[in-house]
Nucleic acid binder design. Structure first.
Length: 670
RNA sequence: GCCAACUUAGCUCAGGGGUAGAGCAACGGUUUCGUAAACCGUAGGUCGCGAGUUCAAUUCUCGCAGUUGGCUCCA
């Protein structure tokens, strides 16, 4: 049997040799370090006989694929420990993807306790220390079925039933035999370091109607160093946790008296309002008009929109049980509390608004933005700011003719690029979600809408992936995914085509031909939920906001009481230039004021002592620790004042027609 | 909704069937200080809420609420 090595050289090994034999023939050091093999790019077990001629790559523990194999093998060590410690434990299976962690689902008739996990981990350490061998076997399928039946394992035969082919591979390490396609490490000693992360409930095949199982999760690495690096990464994520930073920086809080509903403290409210101010500026430049719409509507609105039928479990309703009976009796006819509900989305209100007047084709596209507060009765899947029950979206709806759709989407992508760019979010990916099986509207209309989305992206030279069938029942959509500083993916912005709501609300405009036409409605957002974006961005920046968003842009640190009067003068000059200033008047040493100023991530620290009082300026220091030395007052005001301005405020208007921007004739459809 | 854990001072956390603990923060005083955290003192608690067991519950049991982690069929 001949094989080719990655350097192009060929090598001869006896027929029936395994990849491990090959490694041994090259050198004993390599044989010890190698974890798995690749034949023409396909992962192979070291113990498998080399099946054919091809290019063989021997993978050492530091190869990315090797780390996945280590995790997978560690998963088997976990199962080995569990069947040793829990008589009659039923084993099931683990995940397909081992790129981050591993798990294995068991049934032991009860939940694992933290003490159980400690015992399991200790047993696993023993197995790894013993360097237990992983033995690979190929057997006929019916033999495997018999084997697992004799072992009293009831899930394995079920798994065997859905595996194609006549033979299957088994792996045995110590007293545990598992059905597994591998590959695995040759022996448990190659698992350099691991840790169990906890146990949680799961279901057989992820189906809540099937057997409840207990899932144990863990991580494994080639060595202790890699585990330590993982620990450090986790620690960094903990430090950047927006719930922790929100508390530390005094931005927001939560109360059990309004569960999953953020309270913005003054500093958090500054950031929130700056986000709104920034977006309003962008809206003005891109031809949007802001509207303000009611919070509570007659349920009829949501019956018309379809929310009552499809979204009811997520909506809040006014409870008549809290009204005085007499008031209920004497209230004017339609005002029965039970007939009202709180809006979970702005779109139905905007349809009502559109329907309130007549519209000419000259009014389209009609772009209405709404920062209305929304309430959704989310279940238990709430999480800090990331998933809340009340929030605000940078929500806007564009009522447009079908012909105008593509140009709107194209301009929207320009707006999106500017916004994410201004926030320093550069890693953006685009997904187009196309028609699902259950959908509204004709195929011809879907063809046009999907084409409009894709053409708009292609025109801009944007790469995108297609998620077939992932669109909403009312129309296709573009999803904008952003990667944050911790390498996590978030879906923030979206633009969705909607044929359904204009239909349901019977919206019309008068066309150039004098006939009535139905507009298409585009739903779009860039931040998505402001609350969630707030959380994502807080973790992205670790609290070191760009200066225009910072609640305190310049902290003034007087060294002694003698500097206080001059601190007031400097503060007043900066405030006049629009800078948000705070003076640390506490009776503390300068070192402490600086330490806390940096914890609070104030962009600039202005130190004022006797020298600065005399010279009239301040000593400037950045939150990064950079000392910019003495600066005269005028220089401070000019520098900080200009940096503190909202981005985009000096950019030209991109789309005319919004309130405050003169509409030009060429903007109107011909 | 399901599985599990947690809830003690403003914050971070220790403790434990019989008088509740620390650090930071707060407050008072001393110190007036030059680039990452002065010193002394004071105050702060229905130990999440409700019920049960007990001579006695913050501690044990049950219920509720809030919060956290997990709920990714595919060897």
């Amino acid at each position: 049997m001949r094989v080719q090595l990655p350097d192009g050289k060929e090598r001869e090994v006896p027929d029936g040799s395994t990849f491990l034999d090959l490694a041994k023939s090259i050198g004993p050091g390599l044989a010890k370090a190698v974890v798995a093999a690749k034949l023409d790019g396909e992962l192979m077990d070291l113990q498998a006989p080399i099946p054919r001629f091809g290019t063989v790559q021997l993978l050492k523990a530091d190869a990315p694929e090797a780390e996945e194999i280590i995790r997978h093998s560690c998963e088997h060590v976990l199962a080995t420990a569990v069947i040793r410690l829990f008589k009659g434990a039923q084993v099931t299976m683990g995940p397909q993807d081992h790129s981050k962690d591993f798990y294995y689902d068991f049934d032991i008739g009860r939940a694992f306790s933290p003490e159980d996990l400690e015992k399991i981990e200790a047993e696993m350490k023993k197995i790894v220390a013993e360097d237990v061998a992983f033995v690979r076997k190929e057997v006929p399928k019916d033999e495997a079925v018999q084997l697992f039946q004799s072992l009293g394992q009831r899930f394995k035969p079920e798994i065997l039933a859905w595996i194609p082919g006549d033979t299957v591979t088994l792996y045995q390490d110590a007293d545990f035999i598992d059905l597994c396609r591998g590959p695995h490490v040759p022996s448990a000693g190659r698992i350099g370091a691991f840790r169990l992360l906890g146990a949680a409930g799961a279901y057989w095949r992820g189906d809540a109607t099937k057997d409840p199982l207990q899932r144990i999760r863990g991580v494994a690495f080639k060595d202790e160093k890699a585990l330590k690096a993982w620990d450090e990464k986790m620690e960094l994520a903990r430090q950047r946790d927006h719930r922790r930073l929100g508390k530390e920086l005094g931005l927001f809080g939560f109360s059990p008296l309004a569960p999953a509903s953020p309270f913005f403290l003054p500093k958090g409210a500054v950031i929130y309002n700056q986000m709104l101010a920034y977006m309003r500026g962008q809206y003005r430049r891109f031809g949007y008009q802001e509207v303000i719409t009611p919070q509570i509507y007659s349920v009829d609105v949501f019956k018309t929109s379809g929310h009552y039928a499809n979204y009811r479990e997520n909506m809040y309703f006014a409870d008549p049980g809290h009204s005085d009976e007499e008031i209920q009796k004497t209230a004017p006819g339609p005002l029965k509390n039970s007939e009202f509900s709180v809006k979970p989305m702005n779109c139905p209100g905007h349809c009502v608004l559109f329907g309130m007047g007549h519209h000419s084709f000259r009014d389209l596209p009609w772009r209405v933005a709404d920062f209305g507060r929304l309430h959704r009765a989310e279940g238990e899947a709430v999480h800090g700011m990331m998933r809340v029950r009340t929030f605000c979206q940078d929500d806007a709806h564009i009522f447009v003719s079908e012909d105008g759709m593509q140009s709107e989407m194209s301009t929207f992508m320009e707006l999106v690029d500017e916004v994410y760019g201004d926030f320093g979010l550069t890693d953006v990916t685009v997904v187009v979600a196309t028609r699902p099986e259950k959908r509204l509207g004709s195929d011809a209309i879907w063809d046009r809408a999907e084409k409009a989305l894709m053409t708009a992206l292609e025109e801009k030279g944007r790469k995108y992936t297609v998620a077939p069938g992932e669109g909403a029942f009312y129309g296709p959509k573009i999803e904008l995914h952003v990667k944050d500083g911790l390498d996590r993916d978030w879906q923030l912005g979206t633009i969705q085509v909607d044929f359904a709501l204009p239909e349901r609300f019977e919206l019309e405009y008068v066309g150039a031909d004098g006939a009535r036409h139905r507009p298409v409605m585009l739903h779009r957002a860039i931040f998505g939920s402001l609350e969630r974006f707030f959380g994502v961005y807080l973790e992205h920046t670790g609290g070191a906001y760009p200066i225009w968003l910072s609640p305190v842009q310049a902290a003034i640190l007087p060294i002694t009481d003698r500097a206080m009067a001059h601190a007031d003068v400097v503060a007043a000059a900066l405030e006049k230039a629009g800078v948000r200033v705070w003076i640390d008047r506490r009776n503390e040493k300068l070192g402490k004021k600086i330490a806390e100023g940096r914890v609070q991530k104030y962009p600039y620290l202005l130190v004022i002592g006797d020298r600065e009082v005399e010279q009239g300026g301040a000593a400037l220091r950045t939150r990064g620790g950079e000392d910019l030395g003495y600066q005269p007052l005028e220089a401070l005001v000019a520098k900080i004042g200009s940096e503190a301005r909202l981005p985009g405020s000096d950019r030209p208007v991109r789309v005319t027609g919004a309130i405050g921007v003169a509409a030009e004739d060429n903007q109107r459809p011909a």
